[in-house]
Design a protein around this nucleic acid. Sequence first.
DNA 1: CGAGTTTGACCTGCGC
DNA 2: GCGCAGGTCAAACTCG
Length: 278
Amino acid sequence: MVVQLFNTEIIMDEKVETIKAELKRVREENNTLRMMLEVLSSKYTKLETHLQEINKTQHKGMSSNQIGSVTVPPMFQTNKRPRLEFPTAKKPLQIFVKTHPKDDSLIVKDGYQWRKYGQKVTKDNASPRAYFRCYMAPICPAKKKVQRCLHDKSILVAIYDGEHSHGPLDESSSSTPKGSSPVANNKLPLMTSVPNDKEAMNIDLALSGWSQTDRRHCEDVMQQNNNNGGSNIKIEEYVSSLIKDPDFTMSLAEAVARTITGQQKQQDLNLNLELPEE
DNA sequence: CGAGTTTGACCTGCGC
DNA sequence: GCGCAGGTCAAACTCG
């Protein structure tokens, strides 16, 4: 009897240790994500400021770079067709979704109901591109294109066009036709989204669960997407110049340090407040 | 049988 | 004007 109680106690202790270890792992992961967010935010602010400066300086001498009321910075002008680039209400949103390698469906669960209306094999990617239209509302103009990542078939790239004229369904009832839950589908929730093309700078995709390869592949995709606009070279040049910029590196380091120290305090606090009793 | 998917044809815009 | 490529249509097909 006493031995049994002792054994039970040992098992409980082991469980607690396991949970603590898991908790620690999740916290570390969370810290990493926060740091990345901070870095991204810092990069974005800097880039945005620089872009505004460019716009200002070029606005003076510009005359032929306007389409209607929309001003197109020269760095975004291209020889190739802009098709989806110009006066759309909002820039298309690009989303990457990691799927199970064996899962060959082009279903991206995002809270809306989509109906497939076409599929096409594009020139630069052997994987077919599927075209979806939102049918939650009769006049919803939202559309999306879903295609597999060129280098990594387990990654879906969804490009959204237009805005929904309604809200999303709740998670339990929403699905792409014949879809199932993301977990059951072996799909993770939306791993990352980036503002399309022009704003899609060298965004770090190092989110939890993504290997270096995945990130590189998806960066390739973003790059291809940018190449369609022909502006990527300049963006990349600018990003690389940013990396070399001591000021930028310094502010980046400060941001990271600030985050780490801030999180250390937060973590200590959490240790006291969390670990709910069961 | 109806809803949703597939797929070949057609449309449209752009570069040459 | 022509050809190419992306996007859309709609009839045929599939599935529950």
